[in-house]
Amino acid sequence: MKVCDTAVEALGAVEDGATVLVGGFGMAGMPVALIAALIEQGATDLTVVSNNAGNGDTGLAALLAEGRVRKVICSFPRQADSWVFDGLYRAGAIELELVPQGNLAERMRAAGAGIGAFFCPTGVGTPLAEGKETRVIDGRTYVLEMPIRGDVALIGAHRADRLGNLVYRRTARNFGPVMATAATRVVAQVSEVVDVGGLDPESVVTPSIYVDAVVAV
């Protein structure tokens, strides 16, 4: 675990073709500085996993606009201000895997918990379950869902200590704790890094074992 001075240093090396988990629900919990660092760093042909597919012209939308994302795995790409994604999608310039929001979270949770796959009732009988294995368990039909693992997770948290323990703030928590478990390298941007002992252990949401680098912005 490393406390870094800049978002670029915290981000480190991201290879072309990497799968990047990006936290946030709308702008709440969105790791804006780390996305800016990823734009600067230059990796391309990325698969991005995030609830949305960018808002306005900044953050994730800016990464998309630079043509650096091959595929988006998300639950809700279409928004009033998702014109960057919309244009790429309509032009056939970006691939979309649409995943129900709860399955998106659970598939990453499974990856982070070492679960090989899981049977889930969400989506049974809908187009999003087509072609997937199903099984009837106790009279209910379930769909087999596979884990989603990232090479890198970029998350926004509220505060970190110097070991990488994280606390979040209100609904900005959203995908952060799950994504923190599901990637090889986990980078958090926080508003403040405190000394070891500066966080109440009972309030820690993401334990330090998951976190590789933090940067205060």
């Binding site: 639950s75 790409p77 919309d86 129900p100 709860g102």
Partner: peptide, 8 residues
């Protein structure tokens, strides 16, 4: 543009 969110 498809979007499903929490609906399912």
């Amino acid at each position: 543009i498809p979007a499903v969110g929490e609906a399912m």
